[in-house]
Amino acid sequence: MRISARTQYALRAATELAAAPPGPVPAERIAASQNIPRRFLDNILLQLRRAGLIHSQRGPDGGYWLARPAEEITLADVILVVEGNPERPAHGGYPGVARPLADVWSALREYEETLLAEITLAHIAKDSLP
């Protein structure tokens, strides 16, 4: 699985929100602490907000916060918002003795999907993987 820079930034921003104390977190603070270009971050935060993963508030006391508890938002949730539903590549055309490789790639994709659906933002923020 290839994770784009945009998706990595989104995961880092969401984890930053998961680790933050209650209340809005300014985008400037997220960008600075995670070394994410601000313009890029603004687009990612908008995407996460439109998907319902985060909320926002404008103004001097404004910022962003998670829409649900960090224990309820998985890495897969964030990746799905940013990447969309990935198409599965067709690997069924291997000839001869290489034919079982298609099953290996399929099992690997399933493992990745299962793992990402089990790990929450809370796990990452607390450095306690399941």
Rank of each mutant, 00 (worst) to 15 (best):
residue 17 L to F: 09
residue 16 E to M: 09
residue 2 R to L: 09
residue 90 A to I: 13
residue 76 A to L: 10
residue 83 E to N: 02
residue 8 Q to G: 15
residue 13 A to P: 02
residue 115 L to M: 12
residue 25 V to M: 14
residue 99 R to M: 07
residue 92 G to M: 07
residue 46 L to S: 15
residue 47 Q to T: 14
residue 10 A to C: 05
residue 36 I to R: 00
residue 55 H to Y: 09
residue 95 P to T: 02
residue 127 D to W: 08
residue 69 P to Q: 09
residue 129 L to S: 07
residue 12 R to M: 08
residue 3 I to M: 15
residue 35 N to A: 14
residue 77 D to G: 04
residue 80 L to C: 01
residue 35 N to S: 13
residue 98 A to T: 10
residue 129 L to D: 02
residue 69 P to E: 05
residue 84 G to P: 01
residue 130 P to E: 04
residue 116 L to I: 03
residue 65 W to L: 09
residue 54 I to C: 00
residue 37 P to G: 06
residue 26 P to A: 12
residue 50 R to Y: 04
residue 42 D to E: 08
residue 49 R to I: 05
residue 55 H to V: 09
residue 55 H to M: 07
residue 61 D to H: 13
residue 16 E to I: 02
residue 98 A to R: 10
residue 72 E to I: 06
residue 50 R to F: 04
residue 83 E to G: 06
residue 100 P to A: 10
residue 76 A to S: 13
residue 111 Y to R: 12
residue 52 G to K: 12
residue 36 I to V: 07
residue 25 V to E: 07
residue 115 L to E: 12
residue 29 R to V: 03
residue 30 I to K: 00
residue 107 A to Y: 02
residue 86 P to E: 02
residue 123 H to P: 06
residue 5 A to C: 03
residue 9 Y to T: 01
residue 40 F to I: 09
residue 50 R to H: 10
residue 80 L to Y: 00
residue 22 P to V: 05
residue 125 A to M: 04
residue 97 V to N: 06
residue 5 A to Y: 02
residue 114 T to M: 11
residue 100 P to Y: 08
residue 12 R to Q: 15
residue 120 T to E: 03
residue 116 L to M: 11
residue 18 A to L: 04
residue 12 R to A: 13
residue 30 I to L: 00
residue 101 L to C: 11
residue 47 Q to D: 15
residue 128 S to I: 05
residue 6 R to M: 11
residue 64 Y to S: 02
residue 97 V to E: 07
residue 123 H to K: 00
residue 107 A to M: 09
residue 49 R to N: 15
residue 108 L to H: 12
residue 16 E to L: 05
residue 42 D to F: 07
residue 109 R to W: 03
residue 84 G to E: 03
residue 43 N to G: 15
residue 129 L to W: 11
residue 53 L to F: 15
residue 4 S to A: 08
residue 77 D to V: 10
residue 27 A to P: 02
residue 41 L to R: 01
residue 71 E to G: 10
residue 22 P to I: 08
residue 7 T to E: 07
residue 67 A to M: 02
residue 22 P to T: 13
residue 76 A to I: 01
residue 84 G to M: 06
residue 36 I to Y: 01
residue 87 E to H: 11
residue 38 R to K: 15
residue 32 A to T: 08
residue 99 R to Y: 04
